[in-house]
């Protein structure tokens, strides 16, 4: 282990000095104010139209129910709307505002919306050139001719990657809270959030529903985001080992992640699509009780699928990296 620490230090330093993390922070610093402004406009409009959030919620429920009676809406949509109506009704009955305008609520919904595309993108900025970058620059020859076993080098890269993925999740949350809080106020930690909706067909079972304070909900959410980000990171590491060029490695991973998002919205009838990793990335939906992209998917199932993909990627990464000939 004492021999591994300097290697981890090396890999962490290299990512830092490549200024990849600065890019991530910069992207966050630009995007979060944009979304905060958009949210502010929505809040202003709502304030103009509704004096009370109860009215707004009732209005929303009515809108959804009108949609449900229309013939032109596909069944799939109807199912999710029906569930949404039941959830809104639950919040209304318990006198809790699900869209309370404060920094914490904004952060919660921003993080949850970012999990399928935005976080994978940030993770790819770090993970995609971990190995392929060393090949492109030729430094892999120096790295692998030092008296260190190859698996230790890959392991140190993996540890450094885990560190930066964790940092990305935490920094995103903190920046989001700080920036949006300046506009919406820095409160909302104690607001109850309902979780534990069990979806059965097009109705929800509310016997397991319980309220958790929003700070605890945020922690659970961050944990789930970390799990899906790490899965993407480990897959990207494998692609980076297998593919020689960094741009090819980014494109491959982006294609995989984006196709998952598209499949999620159209694969209701193709059931085996649920085994694809990118269809399972939206873990935070299970927490909020939104219907899964394919019926029958549960949090446990998604975690299992992600773990399986990650384990296979790790096995492939390590066996290829330790055996492959470095030709270029």
């Amino acid at each position: 282990m004492d021999r591994l620490l300097p290697l981890i230090q090396n890999e962490t330093l290299k990512i830092w000095k490549k200024k990849r993390f600065f890019v991530i922070v910069l992207v966050l610093l630009i995007l979060i104010p944009v979304f905060t402004y958009a949210q502010l406009r929505i809040a202003e409009t709502n304030k103009k139209n509704f004096k009370d959030w109860h009215n707004q919620l009732v209005q929303q429920i009515n809108e959804y129910q009108n949609m449900l009676s229309s013939d032109r809406i596909p069944d799939e949509w109807k199912r999710s709307r029906r569930i949404a109506v039941q959830q809104l009704q639950y919040y209304l009955d318990h006198d809790v505002n699900p869209n309370s305008p404060d920094g914490v609520t904004f952060t919660r919904s921003f993080m949850s919306n970012a999990v399928t595309l935005f976080f994978p993108l940030l993770v790819l900025a770090i993970a995609s050139d971990l190995v392929s970058g060393e090949r492109t620059s030729g430094t892999i020859k120096m790295l692998l001719t030092r008296p260190v076993r190859r698996w230790k080098i890959l392991l140190s890269k993996l540890v450094a990657l885990t560190f930066y993925v964790s940092l990305t999740v935490v920094v995103s949350g903190v920046l989001c809270y700080l920036i949006s809080g300046a506009v919406f106020g820095y409160n909302g930690w104690e607001i109850p959030v309902f979780t534990g909706f069990v979806i059965q067909g097009s109705s929800i079972e509310s016997s397991f529903v319980h309220a958790v304070p929003q700070w605890l909900y945020m922690l659970m959410e961050a944990g789930l985001i970390w799990v899906s980000s790490m899965t993407v990171a480990i897959l990207a590491l494998m692609v980076s080992v297998l593919v020689r060029s960094t741009s090819a490695s980014i494109v491959t991973m982006m294609a995989a992640v984006i196709s998952g998002t598209i499949l999620s919205s159209m694969s209701s009838s193709w059931h085996s699509a649920k085994f694809i990793f990118s269809v399972n990335l939206q873990l935070t939906d299970y927490l909020a009780g939104s219907p899964p992209p394919i019926t029958g998917m549960t949090l446990g199932f998604s975690l299992l699928i992600l773990a399986f993909w990650a384990a296979v990627s790790l096995a492939v990464s390590f066996s290829v990296f330790t055996k492959q000939d470095i030709m270029n």
Binding site: K14, K17, K18, K19, S137, G138, T139, K141, M142, T145
Partner: peptide, 14 residues
């Protein structure tokens, strides 16, 4: 062993 294989490579950003 110390070696330089082909070109002398280094991390250019450091």
């Amino acid at each position: 062993v110390g070696c330089i294989v082909e070109n002398p490579e280094a991390y250019s950003y450091m």
